[in-house]
Design a protein around this nucleic acid. Structure first.
Lengths: 189, 189, 189, 189
DNA sequence: AATGAATGAGTTTTCATTCAT
DNA sequence: TATGAATGAAAACTCATTCAT
């Protein structure tokens, strides 16, 4: 079983590494197999098709990111503490996994990947809504529709992570705190 | 010449329309030609290759967006007026051109397109730096490296535009003002 | 147009020639293309898929055979004359086109080909029913269900043609007449 | 040994069942193994290759059919009795084994199967020649080359069996007798 | 300039067969 | 013996590009 998981993981890793550097079309199955040190046909023992492989990779990263964001989530703490917790972990996750960030950015909203968000994930994500709802109740937020807040925060931080990954800024721990603070200022009343 | 431009434009339009719905690989040159009501070989009278076609489309949209952003730019006005001017126009441009937005989002950072930012464009964009520099001089900005500000603002607004285009929020004129205001709060000290 | 038909015909001819000698699976599209003196992709300009190509070949031969059988069909003549006319022409058609015979035999009832019998063909074939119906009315036939007669005749003649094509018998014009006579004896009361 | 034979038979049965419904190429070894409730590699303990498996199946059915045809063969009886005996049993065999009929029809004359008619079988089949020779001696047959008679009879009956298996006619015991009678009329002088 | 049939390199995918367990 | 994951050769098919008209 360990061996099997190794093959599967090697294939996913190879796919990730190739796709952040090359085109989808020039990242051929043969190339992936070679890069993963695996026979070509082996990929098809683990994934139905190239599309399924790329989609699986996408969904696994997405899942890992969200799971990370809510690790040790202080459900009972104050708004700001919850706010900072979630986005701090998101930033850290992608700064530690820059390839995953590039990949997810590139394939979000691509017609090629079939997103597969399961119930567990949706339940987890519901915490964000609860947080913003609580914040609204306490009059902490700007007079904007609720659905505006996540894009505002996510958008800024995503763009900063991209800049960091591209090397145009350095997003260390201090900078992350300042950045999240800026996002908080953006949404707070 | 008008006829020729018509063909060229028809090809670009067809490419845009197909690429926001379909994959790069499944958007074949034949399909583009058919959709543009043009012979297959005709595309090659206007564009060197598929890559050149897609890159041209990308760069023309990019160019149009930036040109729009700085139309009637009040170079001598106050910081906030300049700040709002630029991003208001960006929002409006993409809300009026949702297909262009989707396309640009999808192909920014794709290894397939070759961005071609010319001098004029760079000069125009330099105005943003000037604005943030002026703002910093006047002590209006947070204590963050200068290169943080554009991602913060651009990221938020981009995400909001995406939400609007996807139909999860409505970004009308009032909402745009509020959103830019939020971004200003994010960067202001 | 002539050129185009030539390519199409060359492809069909090559497919026929290869399929009577080799397996379906070892008759690759590349092999067909080479044999037809045509580029590989060209096949796909004329046929949707390998399956479509083989099915088309099958249906065209089938069509040609039936059309041949009813050429100058003496609709008003006596039963025997009509009977001999049809089967004599079928025998002659396949003796002149042995490859077509082998191919049709091999792919009749194969799950691979999709038979496509159009209305015209069905109307033509209805003549057989009419003939046997007339014969029955005149009390010329054995006391057997009507649907037995065609298999009886067709089966015998088909097997004889196969033997001829395989070289174990010689089915010349005289032998054809004798064979059809035998078939007539089989069905006549 | 019984267990082993069971596996072998399960594999042959699975092959038969799949091949009458699906293509040779889409009837993969994996599919056969799954259908036979047997491990993939197990097939190769009993058969050298896919080709050997299919050929074996073909030859075993062929063997069974011929053996059946000559069970209790009344070597000393009159021509007609022998004639009816043989073909009656062939009809019955295939009506009781419709899958075998479809399979044999499909793979007779396929370049894929390697027919393997052993001496015993040939000796058995020689009885047919003897019967027709005797008939000829007694002046019972038409003035046709001897090699014409078997195709005439076999062809008709095969076509009738096919019609029965396809459901377009019903070939019950009475109909079989009438059909063989028709064949006798075809060959008799 | 406009066209689209022809092309074959390059891609995804299948599947018979092997072999370590 | 029985197994089925691993393999890669070989297949079908796509599609950017060319070029004769």
């Amino acid at each position: 079983m360990t061996r099997l998981q190794n093959k599967r993981n090697a294939i996913l890793k190879a796919t990730l590494e190739l796709l952040i550097e090359y085109d989808l079309q020039s990242t051929s199955m043969t190339r992936i197999a070679t890069h993963a040190n695996v026979g070509m046909g082996t990929i098809y023992n683990y994934f139905e098709s190239k599309e399924a492989l790329v989609s699986t990779l996408f969904n696994e990263i997405h899942h890992a990111m969200i799971t990370t964001m809510f690790t040790n989530y202080p459900e009972q703490a104050g708004i700001q503490e919850r706010f900072f917790h979630v986005w701090r972990l998101k930033c850290k996750y992608f700064i530690e996994h820059p390839q995953e960030f590039i990949f997810v950015e590139r394939f979000t909203a691509s017609p090629y990947v079939k997103p597969n968000i399961d119930k567990t994930l949706l339940n987890t994500l519901a915490q964000l809504d609860i947080m913003f709802e609580d914040a609204k109740q306490q009059g902490l937020l700007k007079q904007l529709p609720k659905s505006f807040f996540i894009p505002i925060v996510n958008g800024s931080l995503g763009a900063l992570i991209r800049s960091h990954v591209m090397g145009t800024i350095v997003l260390d721990e201090d900078a992350i705190e300042l950045a999240i603070h800026a996002c908080w200022d953006a949404v707070k009343s």
